[in-house]
Design a protein around this nucleic acid. Structure first.
Lengths: 221, 221, 221, 221
DNA sequence: AATGAATGAGCCTTCATTCAT
DNA sequence: GATGAATGAAGGCTCATTCAT
């Protein structure tokens, strides 16, 4: 795995000349905000810093968002939901084995969220949900519940077909997903203390344990 | 499991004015601080609130801690390390099977940390480590590394004896521990959105998957 | 002398909200700060009061000065040095008698500093130098040493020409200047207890004593 | 002049055993307070520091003084008045020349006040009088006016006898006294920037200028 | 649309003062 | 008398928000 550690489509802070696509502006702002919210937390992030990182002035933020809290909401609401739709689609069409489907699902999540800047959102929700119950509820209803539904389908499919042992599905979902979440949480917290787990190996070990744990007879089907 | 959801030996806010208890005070203050830091985050927690929850005035905090940051450090440095020593001891003396040892270890962690107020510390570290690199380093060196060492011994013991399949130990540690961490993180975040996983079932499912995943032939050795 | 007691070009407190005048602001702020620091002392002066006197809000101070201490430094560093350069110039070009030069020098100091708001600076230095060694050093090096040098030239000139008796020049400088300093110090302290010395008479008496004391034969050369 | 620079009957910070003369305590406290008020100013001096320097606890201060301001008043009201009475006495009895009497008077002031810890009081009055009009008034009425009266007598005596030229007495008093005041002010302010005037030489130069300035014919009568 | 000077509410921190021991 | 833990009002400083340009 010789790609750069964590690909971050970083916001270009090069202050472009005046003309700019109106529509692109807000997402540049939320992108900058996401990075800083994840890094410092909501309360400790100053709007000055967000503006600076996005290459605009502080006042400009208020042209697009009513308040700091509104910006926070926009950060969360943006970008993850579309990916879920794709996952739901993918899963519905899949023809192969459930084990492969599960593996594929988790890998996709890692590639499209865990590895990207979007991974900051779960970390943010974990850190700030108590301060923003409304946002937390939104995230829960629109991301978590739907994500769980996808997972549940896969697990149900595997159990129905006999590929998977029968377990309590709802807790199994969380157990299975936890390592992925911890991996992204890690990226934004103690990762910086020198404990740099290699994601590829981590995922491989997780799958290994998971497949042997789920499937009744042998590990590799 | 008919005990109260999450036992929290809440700080008695009975205001007994001007009592002299210089010894008890610091831990009462850190307990109140921990609760609020976990709930709101460091920056969003006001010292007034901490003082109020501990039943003292704001100025009193400064009799025991030099600053808000010093209080934060004290919160983290207090209370987890002793439990680690106990775990190390327990593990060294254990005579039974490695599977049982592993299960015991994780259960103990849940009972003594995950279920108690101390579980806030990992959540706090996750949320704030970037803002307090020094504290994060302390936690990493004194808690995480030692915790990993205990886990590593158990896994190594099981692999040496043939009870466990051979895996990359260092990533396995994290994979195995992740669900427990997520369970406590959950307690302090989206738990409040109505998604109330039952810890007992969760742990049982985790162990089930884990045992089948780790042990070569059959699930229950 | 029928001009108003002590002319103070007081800061116009007319609140013209949100005017943009980034250039004029700093000196308006230091002027207000000087007045209050001199009146109450550094520690007893509140930034609210300074802001109010300058007709701005408290936060505005921080757009121009990093801290209360930085404001203090700016107050001291501003305004006296330029006058010294003028004095040095004047003295170098002077053609008349040394007695007249000395009288001129002291009168100029009184008119350009002692009588104006700038006179607060020496009083401030006297009161606060122990708390701000760095500022005191700056003032010593850039104001006092240069001022002494000017005085020394004049005295040396007079002694060389035989107009003045020979005295220990370095102590003479201080002895001669002391009454002027006390006069300004007085203005900002016990002046308010009803002891209102008339500056003109005071200066005249000082010159009288000084001329008779310095010149060998008769008083008026 | 080989005595130590500035003799200060420093407060012994040796914490003596419990028993102590009741009466001595308050003057130890005011002595410690004077030192710190002079050094840092009233507002910037903490009662903790005063108590520490006096070797007592903070609460003890309130056994003797009602408030910080009361302590300040006590500091000023203590110790100078008795010396004035002595000066008045001395002057009334004096038989020699007025020049010698004047010189004696100023020297005594220097030895008994200027050189000692009491010299801090004038500096304190200069710095703080605006904040404590009541104390300033007290000082003005009980110290300054009486001091001026003594000076006035001496000058009047000399003018009456023809020893001194005729000048405006009230301004002459201030002019003549200014260098002494500046000398003590200096001791507590910029003295610490390395500009260490030698008091003996300073006084000698002052007397030299003064005698020549005051006396009609020749310098030394 | 974009800027950035200005605002003022709010929080951390200090310290004079009190009072139970 | 003496102590020092506790208090709470006050002040320095920050920063989200506004608005004239």
């Amino acid at each position: 795995m010789n790609k750069p550690a964590f690909p971050s489509p970083a916001v270009s802070a090069t202050r472009a000349p005046r003309r700019r696509r109106k529509d692109a502006r807000p997402s540049e702002l939320t992108a900058a905000a996401l990075e800083l919210f994840v890094e410092k937390g909501f309360a400790a992030t100053r709007l000055d810093d967000i503006a600076a990182r996005a290459g605009v002035s502080k006042g400009t933020l208020y042209l697009y968002f009513d308040s700091k809290e509104a910006l926070f909401k926009a950060v969360v609401e943006e970008g993850i939901v579309p990916l879920l739709a794709a996952a739901e689609q993918k899963m519905a069409e899949y023809q192969g084995s459930s084990v492969d489907l599960l593996r594929l699902l988790l890998l996709r999540w890692w590639e499209q969220i865990g590895e990207t800047r979007l991974a900051g959102v779960p970390k943010l929700i974990i850190s700030e949900s108590r301060n923003f119950p409304e946002v937390a509820q939104y995230y829960h209803d629109n991301v978590i519940l739907r994500g769980r539904a996808v997972m549940r389908s896969v697990l149900q499919r595997g159990m129905d077909s006999g590929e998977f042992r029968v377990l309590d599905i709802d807790t199994a979902i969380d157990v299975i997903f936890s390592p992925l979440l911890m991996l992204v949480v890690w990226r934004f917290s103690l990762y910086f203390c020198g404990q740099k787990t290699d994601p590829a190996t981590f995922l491989q070990t997780h799958f290994d344990l998971l497949v042997h744990g789920l499937c009744p007879q042998k590990g590799k089907p």
